[in-house]
Amino acid sequence: MSIQHFRVALIPFFAAFCLPVFAHPETLVKVKDAEDQLGARVGYIELDLNSGKILESFRPEERFPMMSTFKVLLCGAVLSRVDAGQEQLGRRIHYSQNDLVKYSPVTEKHLTDGMTVRELCSAAITMSDNTAANLLLTTIGGPKELTAFLHNMGDHVTRLDRWEPELNEAIPNDERDTTMPAAMATTLRKLLTGELLTLASRQQLIDWMEADKVAGPLLRSALPAGWFIADKSGASERGSRGIIAALGPDGKPSRIVVIYTTGSQATMDERNRQIAEIGASLIKHW
């Protein structure tokens, strides 16, 4: 058993032996400061991975655009179909130039040979490839079927209504393609630790998130040596930015963190910096 498999397999085991986890309101002070700095709403939640207890939250039940963070949920739905014998990670999917949409750094290189379902999930999560996400959405029946999958998990909040890139429109008060921090954190925890997916599929999902290559300026920039993080970021119109993550010290995840912001006029660099500073406060007061 690899170190990674050891880590995921023991998450339920550690729940019975973990020390009490204490919240630190200092992080919420930073979240509120980020709102002031960005001139935008910020949603935040910090969840204990083992118990599911909410440690801190700010606007946990307000809607925010999901942006590309939905791609983790999408690959969770794909893995659920794999577990049920309805899909194979090794199945190759062929597509054409007409299928390519904006920001497809991986799929645009494989027009001649296509990509496997496994490769598409990797591209969608680690590189946020939009065509990969659309191709995967097609395999499960489209955005409405992803919403149905989430409903069956008990998440009646999170919804996907459109495809890439239209889902990134982020119109104020538009509930399409949105979630709430509390709903996203709970759903992510179920995917990573619950019985919905097999152990192998849970491991695969967290491996893809751990290999994320496009979230460096966010929480990863504040991470001390030896800490673990598996994450997925997102960005969209109207100053929207977000990240969902499982992270913790000693090389294993122990908390879920979800951060969303929307409605800012700030630059992408400034949005990144504010999220990184929230992460730094979280780690300092861990």
Rank of each mutant, 00 (worst) to 15 (best):
A183K: 07
I283T: 06
M153L: 13
N168G: 04
F149S: 05
H151D: 12
I93Y: 04
L136P: 01
T179R: 01
E108N: 11
P181H: 01
D250G: 14
L135Y: 02
L219A: 01
Y44F: 10
T158F: 03
I244H: 02
I93K: 01
S68T: 00
S254V: 11
A211D: 13
G239R: 05
I229H: 00
L247P: 01
Y103T: 05
V117E: 00
M115S: 04
K144D: 12
H156Q: 12
S221V: 10
E87D: 10
T112R: 12
V8E: 11
H151Q: 14
A123V: 05
R189H: 15
F58G: 00
L191R: 00
K144M: 15
D250N: 15
G263R: 08
I259V: 09
S240D: 11
F14I: 15
I229C: 09
R91K: 08
V8D: 12
T126V: 08
M153Y: 07
V8M: 13
V29L: 13
E87R: 00
S201T: 06
I243T: 02
P172H: 09
M115T: 02
V82Y: 06
R7H: 12
H94Q: 13
C18I: 11
L167F: 00
A183I: 07
L219H: 01
G242E: 00
L28M: 11
R81V: 05
L188A: 05
M153G: 07
F228I: 05
L89E: 05
R220T: 02
A183M: 09
P143V: 02
L150S: 05
D48N: 06
V157L: 08
L89R: 03
H94G: 08
L150W: 05
T131S: 11
G90S: 14
A215E: 05
R159C: 01
W286G: 01
A211S: 11
P217H: 12
R271G: 07
R241Q: 03
T267L: 07
P12V: 12
W227Y: 04
F14V: 15
I243A: 01
L79R: 00
T187D: 12
A133C: 03
D99L: 09
G52E: 05
M115K: 02
L79V: 04
A222R: 14
Q97S: 15
W163N: 07
L247R: 00
G251Y: 08
E61G: 15
T126R: 07
G239W: 04
E277S: 08
L100F: 12
Y44A: 01
S122E: 15
C75P: 00
A23G: 14
E169D: 12
L47Q: 07
A200D: 15
P12L: 13
W208M: 03
M115P: 02
N152T: 14
D113S: 14
H94T: 15
A124D: 00
